[in-house]
């Protein structure tokens, strides 16, 4: 996966998390996932289609999700509140939307699908043409994992000069 494709997602996650949590974030770890991704806790996935296709997943430990959702909503939420899942979905939506905006400015055409809760224990495994990158963001509420599995859509590559 090319860095030009990854960087907008990193920048967007950093900006959205920093604004929502009112504190800077840092990258704790960045790795290629060669085996099927194992979900950490509360996860939301967004699929994109167009010149680049695949999915981006946001995932975090339940306690991190509770702290994150409570901070973003301005009130203490219990661990069982469905708003916690909603908050993680909306966070994913905002990060992907901002990244896609940046990529669109570079000439890529996308369609972003609505976020969905990811309840499966495992994510899709990387394949020969879809590499999976996991980026761990260190935030004031805990570690937030962003799992990116994207590939250039071959039929559209010529159109954007790849």
């Amino acid at each position: 996966m090319k860095m030009e494709l990854i960087q907008p997602f990193i920048n967007a996650a950093d900006a959205v998390l920093a604004q929502g949590l009112k504190a800077p974030t840092s990258i704790e770890n960045l790795s290629m996932d060669e085996e099927a991704y194992r979900r950490k806790g509360v996860a939301a996935v967004i699929w994109v289609s167009g010149d680049i296709e695949g999915h981006i997943m946001f995932d975090m430990m339940p306690q991190t999700a509770v702290r994150l959702a409570s901070l973003l909503s301005g009130m203490e939420l219990p661990e069982t509140d469905t708003m916690i899942w909603e908050a993680v979905c909306e966070l994913a939506n905002q990060v992907i939307g901002n990244a896609v905006t940046s990529l669109n400015d570079q000439g890529f055409q996308f369609r972003v699908h609505p976020p969905a809760v990811h309840t499966s224990e495992h994510g899709a495994m990387g394949t020969e043409d879809i590499e999976t990158l996991v980026i761990a963001f260190n935030t004031t509420v805990g570690t937030v994992y962003m799992n990116i599995a994207l590939r250039y859509c071959q039929k559209n590559q010529a159109a954007v000069g790849l």
Partner: peptide, 27 residues
């Protein structure tokens, strides 16, 4: 009010009757 704020989207929204556009996360 959307997180997807690229120019084509904004122009399409304004051409089809929206008065303004605000990108998420909303300040």
């Amino acid at each position: 009010v959307s997180s997807v704020g690229y120019q084509e989207n904004i122009v399409a929204a304004l051409q089809r009757g929206a008065r303004h556009f605000v990108q998420k996360p909303v300040k």
